[in-house]
Design a protein around this nucleic acid. Sequence first.
DNA 1: CCTGTATTCAACCTAATAGTTATCAACCAA
DNA 2: TTGGTTGATAACTATTAGGTTGAATACAGG
Lengths: 115, 115
Amino acid sequence: MAGDRLSATLFALADPTRRGMLARLAQGDATVSELAEPYDMSLAAISKHLKVLEGVGLVSRGREAQWRPRHLEAEPLKDVWAWLDDYRRFWDRSLDMLGRHLETMKQAGPENSDR
Amino acid sequence: MAGDRLSATLFALADPTRRGMLARLAQGDATVSELAEPYDMSLAAISKHLKVLEGVGLVSRGREAQWRPRHLEAEPLKDVWAWLDDYRRFWDRSLDMLGRHLETMKQAGPENSDR
DNA sequence: CCTGTATTCAACCTAATAGTTATCAACCAA
DNA sequence: TTGGTTGATAACTATTAGGTTGAATACAGG
């Protein structure tokens, strides 16, 4: 995958297993075994997936006895959002139109709502 | 890459060349040669990148004489946005606090707003 | 110290990516 | 029909992704 941060982040997200692990972590920190539980896959494979996520800063690891609980770090998702936001106008016509509508109403004043 | 649509879309986006081509298309339709121009890469390679983008529906092709002008189709980005939106609260603290606030108000009932 | 639990690391395999060059096809224009 | 331009396809190659198994490490408890 390419060297820039955004590419690496998107690449990390482009795998359902890794997204699943993020979803799990969104509900709270979890150990590797807990994260592995839903998947029919060796722990080593899970460990690798986690390394990818850690590599782009989406996950951090703590330590507690022999466990290395993982924590979600969503900050890199900001970059994804920022990129995506530039394209919003292309996919959400109605939102665009709603935006214009609200702008229009704002300019017209609250006393002038349609219906 | 995995079979699901979202994974494929994210994968397609996880390449700076492909994102660059989308950025170019965001300014208007373009031929393959025009899309290739900024890159030090064979046309065949560009063609392949385009095929990836077309494969996930991010780009469509028209025809005009010997040209196959490409067009941006941003609809698949909706899915990305929808996925991302679930994580917004993790990076946007203030929005999170607003969310909690709204939850609190909802639980308390409308008659019981603070202040 | 020994054992069990949790996790990582190393070596290996296979399939897919991302690039190459060379060939082919479609179209316009003379 | 012969070119010239535009683009797609095929065949090949190197690298990486993502999985495996088996050994190594780190820690807690008896």
